[in-house]
Design a protein around this nucleic acid. Structure first.
Lengths: 238, 238
DNA sequence: TGGATTGCTGGATAAAAATCAAGTGGGCGG
DNA sequence: CCGCCCACTTGATTTTTATCCAGCAATCCA
């Protein structure tokens, strides 16, 4: 997170989409990128903006969200170092389908739409990686739809905690800690509920010995029990 | 819908993903396909099945859904003639993320995963079409998430009606008719609510002069007013 | 033909979660 | 150092929507 020296090629190595490219190609890709920084809270783009760039997170976290007319937010995804965002818009040329906001100070690499397509033309196998990436994103979005459509709040909050712990969790004594500057409001926005409800559910979880709040970070004390309560996918089979 | 003679190449022409392929390639693709038929109500695959095939709808309608453990359903998408389904699983090799069920008697073309990839290798530009297709699907899924997260039932039902009318609507005198064998339960499953609520909302819409039921089909009498009440995307911009 | 099943409807009630309201404590800027 | 703002927390109330129920009409089919 603090490696200010040339991250050059190595930032791309972490990204599944690019991992099979050779060093020469990664260098070329890197040379097409611009480095951008955004302070905490700033917007990177808004829903309905014309797509210009694909972004890669170098450090910090980015919220990808949709807003309602009355100011509420739904967080669709979080992007962490090594994640790519803005694909939908760049790949089909339609406006960005959501807003991107820096959750803390953020460092990004950006590649313009045209540059990316020219790179893609010379690396046809990359298209397969992108397809797999989009397919996985779609799959996850469909799981979210299922959760919103048929599961109650506690379930959705538990799911959010588990997803966060998979992406940004670190093992500490007593469980898994989610190392992110998240507010209760953020949790609520990810689970499609209100702050008050999110707080109530979290304090129930605390009473049940499932989670704990340590120095502002959420600590999952009993990940297994949380997992057994969500158990995603393949439930209603025959 | 009734063209029983060799649909061969021409079924593919309707499909955006394939439309730029030349006749020779379409013929080759067609020769890789198997023709399958399913009677009304039958399942084509279940969530968590191993992915074997990509499907193209020739005639009939297919429901793509997720089930909850207590038997409720959420319809993620409907597939009509010319639509492709099963992509997520075929493209990333993971199990199917949802169940596919014939809504009426259905005729399909299926292409096995391996055959499709070999065809894709010889037609690298097809990958770009697939990327655009997946990006559009993802975008739509995100709109559904937004709807479920922040809009109330009437809004969601109105949205479902509009989406259906775009895909399977035909202009008749007095409005746009949705030419599908849909039950109230199906509508409810698409809007993530219960039959009773769906019925109540629809009968309110009827009182307001927005819709009418004619011979089992839903007729949108005032599409514009419905549209103005949903107004998707770009609301909360700055 | 008649009994059963299925889809549609709407009323009464209950449950889940949102909203409203109020108070706490920590951190930051003046 | 004081006061203000913001995140957090909890209780009380209200709203939305699900659940439970019963009746009706059409269709299937034995």
């Amino acid at each position: 997170m603090e490696e200010k020296e040339s991250p050059k090629v190595n930032i791309f190595w972490k990204i599944p989409m690019f991992e099979y490219l050779d060093e020469k190609e990664l260098d070329r890709l890197y040379s097409m990128c611009e480095r951008e920084t955004y302070p905490k809270g700033e917007y990177i783009f808004f829903e309905c903006d014309q797509p210009r760039k694909l972004y890669v997170v170098v450090s910090g976290q980015v919220k990808l969200l949709k807003q309602s007319d009355d100011g509420r937010e739904m967080i669709l995804e979080m992007a962490y170092p090594g994640d790519v965002f803005g694909e939908e818009a760049v790949f089909d040329g339609q406006p960005y389908p959501m807003t991107a906001q820096a959750l803390d100070d953020v460092e990004l690499l950006s590649i313009s739409r045209v540059d990316f397509f020219s790179f893609l033309r010379d690396n046809p196998d990359l298209a397969l990686e992108i397809i797999a990436d989009l397919a996985a994103r779609l799959r996850e979005a469909q799981n979210t739809i299922r959760a919103l459509a048929m599961e109650r709040v506690e379930w959705r909050i538990a799911r959010v905690l588990l997803l966060l712990s998979q992406r940004a969790g670190s093992k500490v004594d007593g469980g898994v800690s989610i190392e992110l500057p998240l507010t209760r409001q953020d949790i609520a926005d990810m689970a499609a509920t209100t702050v008050e409800t999110a707080i109530r559910v979290l304090s129930n979880f605390k009473k049940m010995g499932l989670v704990e709040t340590v120095e502002g970070k959420i600590l999952l004390k009993d990940r297994d029990r949380l997992e057994s309560m969500v158990k995603e996918g393949c439930t209603g089979q025959r």
